[in-house]
Design a protein around this nucleic acid. Structure first.
Length: 536
DNA sequence: TGTGTCTGCCCC
DNA sequence: ATTCTGC
DNA sequence: GCAGAATGGGCAGACACA
């Protein structure tokens, strides 16, 4: 309905779309869901049902009229709004042809499956103007600062490529954030980027800070001249109101006329100064009770990038220059414990031994790991660039904490997993005290296409009609198919966390298949007690 | 007023 | 977030 | 090597409903 950062959501996904389709086509839930699971695609399911049951209401509709329906749907709120959404989508499904039906239901899910996406559309804009994709770099640069395909297209039609030159970094226009590539040893990193600057990696959430210092020239209204701060999340949502403590910190501890910096926000225990686990930090992302929560869980912002300063664009400057500028714009509080905007220590490294040491120290401090940044690397907006390399605890071959799990059941896959007949599987450990299997994770990654097919075939032998008595499973983890104790897998994870849904009371963070353990029997899997001891 | 279900270009 | 795969 | 498409745990918020 618009660019992501404008914050207009459909508020409607799979479950509610199914309701709309059932109501539009007058189909029983079980029948619809059965066909949906078979095809793994809501669009295809609706399309084929529409072909089967021809409707006499079908008519042509203007694109703008359809847009209007979706706009009403997306903006419906309050009492009865769910019914409004269902009814609007249901009308569209009834009134349009089967092929349109396919895309009507795909649209709100965001999975359109046209085989192209934003980047291809940028190419198309270039073709539109020049008949080839030579203008793509200019267009893409503008898109990084203004990630709105509609806006870029309109600008190009109205003003041509020159229009895009007006789009440049400035305070309060968020920039698509860069991500780091991954590597699993100091050796590889030094080989890849040579001399680098190494900094700790904190487990919080990303914030991009935009700041305009006080300036009497900014208008006659006295409030106009006060310092202004905006905070953007990784999806470029404006989240300023959620973090008043960070806003105050910026006003006190940053000196500049205009700047854009980036950092990782992490909660800490105000009494002990210890950093909090992600699950607690993320509770700060909220709409209500902001004041109370900000006292309970205060944040620090570890600033690690500077993209813009006083009219000067730093995006294409070497990292070492950005870093120097960053150090210069922060004011140090006399009481370090009260500092909110922190530019943490960083070390220049060109030997793998030293890098490995810094990594070990970071891990010992219970941090996620380190980020190594190429010393003269530019900031690559919107890319997962090689100028930043993350080296996390879980990647390291030195540390190998995997657990052996029992495969308890599986779900049918969607999209390209449909053919495999499996999209994810539920795994658990043995609770010896109660003689049961309790769940710890669902696994949806780490298998090659061939391994998915292999696991599907293997699991058919043990397929069951119902969930076994000795499986303890929360209903949120219900499976399409249950299988009896037979298959053992080795699962890797970044961390073991407390869980509200998995019956082990613990869950694996970022779980993935490491390997199949055909050499092990169900009795040999990790026990709940062992798992509890592994929790750091 | 309390509980359950669903959603999020969510956060990671 | 992680991982795999087609281009 | 990149972009795209599968999938994970778990949080707050918005509604529906009893």
């Amino acid at each position: 309905m618009g660019p992501a950062y404008e914050g207009i959501d459909f508020g409607m996904a799979e479950r509610t779309i199914i309701k709309s389709a059932m109501s539009a086509l007058n189909i029983d839930r079980n029948y619809f869901e059965k066909e949906f699971k078979k095809s793994g695609d809501l669009g295809q399911t609706v399309e084929s049902f529409k072909k089967l049951y021809k409707s006499f209401e079908e008519k042509d509709m203007e694109v703008l009229a359809v847009f209007d329906f979706f706009y009403k749907l997306a903006t419906a709120s309050g009492n009865g709004s769910q019914d409004v959404k269902v009814s609007l989508l249901s009308q569209l499904i009834r009134q349009l042809d089967p092929l349109s039906g396919r895309y009507l239901v795909r649209l709100p899910t965001g999975i359109i499956r046209l085989g192209f996406s934003d980047m291809t559309i940028l190419d198309a804009y270039s073709w539109m103007l020049k008949g080839d994709k030579s203008l793509r770099p200019i267009i893409e640069t503008a898109y990084h600062v203004r990630p709105d395909l509609g806006f870029i297209g309109k600008m190009l039609k109205e003003k041509g490529i020159k229009g895009l030159e007006e789009i440049e970094p400035k305070a309060f226009t968020p920039i698509i954030m860069m991500k780091a590539e991954r590597m699993s040893s100091a050796k590889e990193i030094i080989k890849q980027i040579g001399k680098c600057l190494v900094e700790p990696k904190f487990d919080g959430f990303r914030l991009q800070v935009h700041y305009l210092g006080s300036d009497p020239r900014r208008g006659s209204d006295p409030t106009e001249s006060l310092p202004k701060v905006r905070l953007f999340s990784r999806s470029l949502e404006d989240v300023t109101y959620m973090y008043p403590d960070i806003v105050e910190g910026v006003k006190k501890e940053v000196k500049a006329d205009e700047l854009i910096i980036e950092g990782e926000a992490i909660g800490y225990n105000p009494k002990t100064g210890e950093f909090l686990p992600f699950q607690e930090t993320v509770q700060r992302k909220r709409k209500y009770d902001i004041g109370a929560k900000s006292i309970e869980v205060p944040l620090k912002l570890f600033a690690f990038e500077l993209l813009y300063l006083n009219g000067k664009n730093f995006i294409k400057k070497p990292f070492i220059e950005r870093r120097k500028a960053l150090e210069q714009v922060t004011i140090k509080n006399k009481d370090i414990s009260k500092q909110i905007i922190v530019v943490d220590h960083q070390e220049e490294v060109d030997k793998e031994e030293r890098l490995e040491e810094i990594f070990d120290q970071a891990v010992a401090k219970k941090l996620e790991g380190v980020i190594a940044k190429k010393i003269d690397g530019i900031y690559q907006p919107g890319a997962r660039g090689w100028n930043w390399i993350k080296y996390k605890r879980s990647y390291s071959s030195k540390i190998n904490d995997t657990i052996d799990c029992l495969v308890m059941g599986y779900d049918f896959g969607k999209g390209k997993r449909t053919d495999f007949g499996m999209g994810a599987f539920l795994v658990g450990v043995r609770d010896e005290k109660n003689d049961k299997f309790v769940t710890v994770a669902k696994i949806g990654t780490g298998l090659t296409d061939e391994e998915w097919r292999f696991l599907k075939i293997k699991s058919q032998i043990s397929k069951l009609k119902d969930k076994p008595m000795n499986y303890s499973v929360d209903k949120a983890m219900n499976c399409d198919v249950w299988i009896s104790p037979a298959i053992v897998v080795e699962i890797k994870a970044d961390e073991i966390t407390k869980s509200p849904t998995h019956t082990a009371g613990l869950a694996l963070r970022f779980p993935r298949l490491e390997k199949f353990r055909d050499d092990k029997k169900p009795e040999d899997v990790t026990t709940l007690e062992e798992l509890q001891h592994m929790t750091r």
